[in-house]
Each structure stands twice: as C-alpha cells, then as structure tokens.
C-alpha cells in the first residue's frame, strides 16, 4: 500500500490501531509519520496526551481492578454481598439449603486473556533437565496451566499445529530478573518457537509467566498483537530446584 492511501489520515492525526499496524511494516508511511510527529513535538506537543489516551482509554481492561489492592478488595466485597444475599434468601424461605460450590473465576485477567483449555494451539515445552540428559516433553501449555522445571534445565518451545501461512505465534517469558520475546519459525505440524534457552537466567526460584498469542506475521510484539485484538493465553513455569 502506498503513502497516498494513508497520507490523509496521518496528516489529520487519525492514527488508530489499523494505521499503526500499517506503519509497523511500511517505511515510507512511517517516515512521513515521524516527520509530522517530530514537527508536532517541536511545536510544543510532547505527545503526552495521545500517549495517555492510548494507554488508558483504548486499553482500560488491563488497568482496572487487577492489583493485589483494589481488585482483591472489590472481590471480597462482592463475596460478602453474595453471602449476605444468600443468607437473606435462606432466612426468608426458611429452608436449609446446601449451596453448590461457587465456580471460581480468576480475579486477575490480563487484556485479551482467553480460556487456556480453549487455546487454538498447544505450546509444547521440550527440554533436558540438565546438559547432557535426554530430551523429554516437559509441559503442554497453556492447557496444563503450570509446570515445574529444574534451574539447570535447557528448554525449547514448539507450537502445534504450526501457525498458518501469514501467521506467527508470539511468546513472552516474564520473570523478575529477566524477560524474553520469542517468535515461531516455519514448520509443518510442529514449529519451533525461538531458540533453546537455559532456565537458570530467569533466577533460581523464578515464576516465569509464559504468555502466547497468534497474530499476523508482521506483528512485532505480543503487546502489539493484543492491541490489534489477538487473544493471549498465559501459563506459568515454576523454577524449582
């Protein structure tokens, strides 16, 4: 696509997710955008307003009630209210009932998170428990949700089935000491995701959050994929000696 198609929208400041997706892969349009953005900055617009709006207005869900503070409190208030309501109904009815166990739903859910059991792919974690040992299947994420690995383990991720042509699986590994971004490579049925890595670098007793999402091939990062509407599936690798 040429600059002519996007020039008008860029110059009118109508830079939505679709335009941004195009800018990521079009050098010509990006150069024009850069010139306008830097000119605007020189004129006094530091971009703070647009940045804030994009972060908070376009993506409200990850920033609402997720913390260990307010989210947990809101959740406990809801539970207290539900219990009081249930008790009231019981009293009025005068009947003793055994309430069925309430389905537990996670209070913390990131933007675009999906049900791990319904993920359209399987992220296979293969590895050796230590250098020189046999390679084995360690976990099948995100369905397994959690797996333990040895700090000396060397891992290689694969995705099954391999993403369709024009698609890529973007994976982020996040721990306090280190984080890493991986992309799936070509493959028929099973495609490698990134290259092999040692678990030790993430810390001796780390909790590695593994989040993955399918996205169009040109998508640079997981965050960009989520912004464009992809669903991410997260699970955890526990590094335990």
């Amino acid at each position: 696509m040429s600059l002519a198609l996007f020039r008008e929208r860029l110059e009118a400041g109508e830079v939505d997710a679709q335009v941004r997706a195009h800018l990521r892969s079009c050098d010509e349009c990006r150069a024009h955008y850069d010139l306008l953005a830097q000119t605007a900055r020189a004129l006094g617009d530091d971009g703070a307003k647009a940045e804030r709006e994009r972060l908070f207005l376009n993506h409200p869900s990850p920033l609402v009630g997720e913390g260990r503070g307010e989210g947990a409190r809101a959740g406990s208030h809801r539970r207290v209210l539900a219990i009081a309501l249930a008790a009231g109904i019981l009293l009025v009815a005068g009947v003793s009932l055994v309430l069925p166990p309430r389905a537990t739903t996670p209070e913390v859910q990131l933007r675009g998170s999906g049900d791990a059991t319904a993920a359209p792919f399987s992220l296979r974690v293969y590895g050796k428990d230590a250098p020189g040992q046999k390679v084995r299947l360690i976990a099948d994420l995100p369905g397994a949700k959690e797996a333990s690995v040895n700090p000396r383990a060397e891992l290689q991720l694969f995705v099954k089935p391999a993403p369709k042509p024009g698609e890529v699986l973007l994976v982020e590994l996040r721990a306090p000491l280190k984080s890493a971004s991986l992309r799936s490579g070509p493959g028929d049925d099973l495609a490698p995701v990134g290259s092999a890595f040692g678990v030790g670098g993430f810390g001796p007793q780390a909790r590695i959050e593994v989040c993955a999402a399918l996205a169009p091939q040109a998508t640079p990062t997981l965050a960009a994929a989520l912004e464009a509407g992809s669903t991410q599936y997260c699970s955890t690798l526990l590094v335990t000696p």
Binding site: R24, Y33, D34, L55, P62, L63, R174, A224
Partner: peptide, 21 residues
C-alpha cells in the same frame, strides 16, 4: 523514530503494569 518511541513507551508501561506485583 517518533513512531518507534511511541510504540516502545506503550510497551514499557504495559510491561510495568504486568510486572507491578
């Protein structure tokens, strides 16, 4: 690049949000 700066700033804050805990 101004565009890359903007993208990176969003990435930084989203990462900060994910790692807040």
């Amino acid at each position: 690049s101004a565009f890359e700066q903007e993208e990176a700033v969003q990435e930084v804050w989203l990462t900060a949000h994910r790692m807040q805990s």
